[in-house]
Design a protein around this nucleic acid. Sequence first.
DNA 1: GCAATAGTTCGCCATATGGCAAACAATCTC
DNA 2: GAGATTGTTTGCCATATGGCGAACTATTGC
Lengths: 114, 114
Amino acid sequence: MANNLASLDSAFHALADPTRRAVISRLITGPASVSELAQPFAIGLPTFLKHLKVLEDSGLVGSGKTGRVRVCHLQPARLAAAESWIAEQRAIWEGRADRLAAYVENHIHKEQGQ
Amino acid sequence: MANNLASLDSAFHALADPTRRAVISRLITGPASVSELAQPFAIGLPTFLKHLKVLEDSGLVGSGKTGRVRVCHLQPARLAAAESWIAEQRAIWEGRADRLAAYVENHIHKEQGQ
DNA sequence: GCAATAGTTCGCCATATGGCAAACAATCTC
DNA sequence: GAGATTGTTTGCCATATGGCGAACTATTGC
């Protein structure tokens, strides 16, 4: 579940950049306009808009325009999907690690009486 | 915590590719050699090695060579770091959403008696 | 030692990415 | 409606990415 390959690609790709992660962190505190979002960064607006496009294409961020100002907001579902993929992997890993640990412990008890 | 910017960059970048995610999924079941890992994919070995290099550079995967065979294994710490970043964001988001929900509910109770 | 096996390195290519400046809308505000 | 504000589009550039084939370097096994 939540393994839409293409969307995982674009979600992780969107997260693989500090500027874009910072935008997400900012949007978590609430919606914001483009220039408001761009303000902390030392890059030009056109460049920043590319980052924003990556975020929107990934579905992590949505936006709507009212008048001349575009307001962006977080779309946490995709964030959850990305987290879920990792969580699933880790769950399998930990299941395996637990079984391994249980086996080793059992082994030690039986063979070494420790 | 776990916000080493550069390593998050490379970890998410490594995850932003279906081949590399598949390698991780495979390695969760246990270590494997390079050709074993490459076998399911319809790409050449040199290309596959580039993916492997991305995974190793990100710290998600480690490897060691014995004889002529390189054995790769998962390094779950970095996977956990990536997951943590998202989890932290979501925690903040949910905290905010909870407060918002509480506020709205309170508001409705007080103003509309519903 | 010769041949097969397992990886690695080297060029080469097309496309994507992330940056810029400059020009171009569109919409407020006075 | 003139001017400021807010985004957007358009070229341009350097570098990174993901793919290939070909050549090369170990090892292993007979």
